[in-house]
Design a protein around this nucleic acid. Sequence first.
DNA 1: GCAACTGTATCGGTCTTATAATACACTTAA
DNA 2: TTAAGTGTATTATAAGACCGATACAGTTGC
Lengths: 127, 127
Amino acid sequence: MISFDSFVMEDGSPIYMQILLYIKRGIVAGKILHDDELPSRRLLSSLLGVNPNTVQKAYKLLEDEGLIRSQTGAASTMCLDENKIEFVRRDLLERDTRNVIRTMRQMGVTQEQAIRLIERFWNEVES
Amino acid sequence: MISFDSFVMEDGSPIYMQILLYIKRGIVAGKILHDDELPSRRLLSSLLGVNPNTVQKAYKLLEDEGLIRSQTGAASTMCLDENKIEFVRRDLLERDTRNVIRTMRQMGVTQEQAIRLIERFWNEVES
DNA sequence: GCAACTGTATCGGTCTTATAATACACTTAA
DNA sequence: TTAAGTGTATTATAAGACCGATACAGTTGC
């Protein structure tokens, strides 16, 4: 059963999107593996204190991407392979990187300054 | 008059927020200076193809932060000093950096890999 | 004074997000 | 078999974000 212990709710983005990204980042980190079982909609909604429909929306989007397999009556499971994992990695990691580079350049930051910023803050940020 | 030539509209975030961030990044980059005149709400809304209220919302938020001075009848002007600029720099640069570090660590990326990502994509991203 | 420009305020419509309350079909385990 | 758990779907409601249209008030320049 995939754990949501380290899930922290933040405001600013929709809850269903936070759930979706939590799972995708777990995939990229190698913490979530093929055939892993997901908590049921009702259980996870209870754990997070949100409406079951909100969890369903996240799961539905993941199923539309082919990352989750669901069949009525049984627990939903992760449906992964090397190609899918690599696709998610690119989608998350490279898009994040490009975005932060774009905004930094708009602020006149050089590559060297950007790297120095990463080095300076890397150990400050709590995981 | 502050130029919006390099402003590119993107979807995904509110227009008023894109306008606000465009100005703040211009401040950090040193392209926007104290006493610089802003285009009027109606002119900028016409340039960007949006409603004057959308521009007004961005300007209003900047005025609430003390970065813009507005008086009815006259053009709004930038209202900056060293402290304000430094505050905006920290607010934008450090928050962006912390955010990208947090998500990268959630994906199991090491500091060395993060720096390598920055180096690899730095010259690819169009400004 | 008047026209044209400034900033400001208000109202309303549309969409997204989140919630709630159901209902139904299927699977599993007691 | 039956009860409890699965996934799925529908409808309604509420709140907020976002944007558009409009009106009003002050300044400037002719």
